[in-house]
């Protein structure tokens, strides 16, 4: 049996033998930081055994996820367009787009022609997804919870399975519309798989998405990158 190096160990969480979307960031940390992450995590678990306080564990994971995704990435812009709001929000019509990977059951987009693709299969095909033009999936805002599916090869979907509102807040926006906080919440809401070709998203998909929203008289848009 050959010994595993720390480098092999950390890489295994990134679509490897220990693939884990919550901890795939370990691959991008120097070995010493991986060792610190684990040692500190175990120490804090010891404290949590005694006081039951999970906050330190959550904070620890958040802090190291942030270290793992540090750096500006490939897409930097020095400025952006800005539209001034014309109406109070209780007169505005809002839409939602999330990169969460939700879809209505029975209308599975079947990526790459694969029927009923599993989360595991999506993770296994991540390199195919990131070359793909994203497909905007329409989701009526009255879709019952048990009729909504979620699959995304880039993040751990278990929280979104437990409650879609963690990254696709259609129930909360329905409530805000019913309470009169916002004028309207437009149906359908939209989701797509954010692990996609960013170039194709910008050049090909986005102009069509804007046309769609304009045709639906959307004035305000909540965007949730996951």
């Amino acid at each position: 049996m050959t010994e595993e190096t720390i480098g092999q160990f950390k890489n295994s969480f990134y679509y490897g033998s220990r693939s884990d979307m919550n901890f795939k960031f370990l691959k991008d940390l120097p070995d010493e930081q991986v060792e610190n992450f684990l040692q500190e995590l175990l120490w804090e678990l010891g404290d949590t055994l005694d006081d039951g306080n999970l906050e330190r564990i959550i904070g620890h994971i958040y802090q190291y996820q942030q270290k793992g995704y540090a750096g500006t990435g490939r897409f930097t812009y020095s400025s952006s367009a800005f539209t001034r709001v014309q109406l109070p929000i209780n007169k505005m019509r809002f839409a939602l787009i999330s990169s969460s990977g939700h879809f209505v059951k029975g209308q599975d987009p079947n990526p790459f022609g694969v029927e009923n693709m599993t989360q595991k299969q999506a993770e296994d095909r991540i390199t195919d997804f990131i070359r793909l033009e994203p497909e905007l999936i329409s989701i009526p805002t009255n879709t019952p919870t048990d009729q909504l599916g979620v699959r995304h090869g880039g993040y751990d979907v278990r929280g979104a399975i437990m409650d879609r509102n963690v990254n696709f807040p259609i129930d909360r926006l329905n409530e805000l519309a019913a309470e009169g906080v916002v004028g309207e919440f437009a149906s359908p809401a939209y989701s797509f798989v954010g692990a996609c070709s960013q170039m194709r998203l910008q050049k090909h998909a986005l102009p069509r998405w804007i046309d769609t929203l304009k045709s639906e008289a959307v004035q305000g848009l909540i965007l949730v990158p996951v």
Binding site: Y62, Q65, Q66, Y69, A70, G71, T72, G73, F75, T83, R84, V85, M92, I210, L213, K214, V218, Q219, G220, L221, I222, L223, V224, P225
Partner: peptide, 16 residues
């Protein structure tokens, strides 16, 4: 195109 937007994101990706 005249649509007012707001992004909600986790600070995990704050640099990007």
């Amino acid at each position: 195109s005249g649509i007012v937007t707001v992004v909600i994101a986790t600070g995990v990706f704050s640099d990007r």
